[in-house]
Design a protein around this nucleic acid. Structure first.
Lengths: 99, 99
DNA sequence: TACATATGTAAGGAAATCTAACATTGTATT
DNA sequence: AATACAATGTTAGATTTCCTTACATATGTA
């Protein structure tokens, strides 16, 4: 897994990187927008990818978009990315789309 | 700056990633092998690049190499990398090596 | 009005980190 | 042999960070 997706950043640092409050960061998890991992003892760990997502969320929220819609958009984006890869043929081995 | 060099990882996570004890991680800093940043309140933050360096250090230590030699090697490596880039021409604008 | 959303804040507890000091073991120097 | 330095462990006390839960509040929506 790349550095971008490895979950190693604790919530205080995410707060500094994004400007979002701890409350907000945890709440967006509760609403299913992000999925940090937990250490054995329960502390949350985020990836750079999560940080990027949170920055997008912050933008959307400023526009007044609700978490429910943001979640939908994020899922669409993910699907979009998967589709791109499929079209590029990188998932052929799994899904046997060609031939 | 890239994700690889951004200092966002706390020492406990570095311990998990490298298998080195907290004591060792701090000691290698004391010996000038790595340079974590500090938050306002004093907690150390490491980059993925630091983690890579620490893995190299761990290897060298197992071979019995002492920290002062490792430091020298690491510095050489850095110089080596800079030279590579210079030869690739990426620093021309700065050093005007060609023409 | 009643309910849901989004966020702040407070409290109490548990986990993580910091520094400093002392102990130990091995290797090198005198 | 005695001394010194290197590398690491361990302990202790203090500070910081993080966790959950609960209550408050403002704003929008059914």
């Amino acid at each position: 897994m790349s550095y971008k997706h490895k979950k190693v950043i604790s919530i205080g640092t995410v707060n500094e990187l994004t400007g979002l409050s701890l409350r907000q960061i945890r709440y967006y998890e509760e609403r299913g927008l992000i999925y940090p991992e937990r250490t054995k003892r329960g502390t949350r760990k985020y990836s750079f990818s999560d940080v990027e997502t949170l920055l997008q969320i912050a933008d959307k929220r400023e526009e007044g978009v609700q978490t429910y819609e943001i979640r939908r958009d994020l899922q669409d984006t993910k699907k979009g990315k998967v589709m791109e890869r499929m079209l590029r043929g990188q998932l052929n081995a799994h899904f046997k789309l060609n031939k």
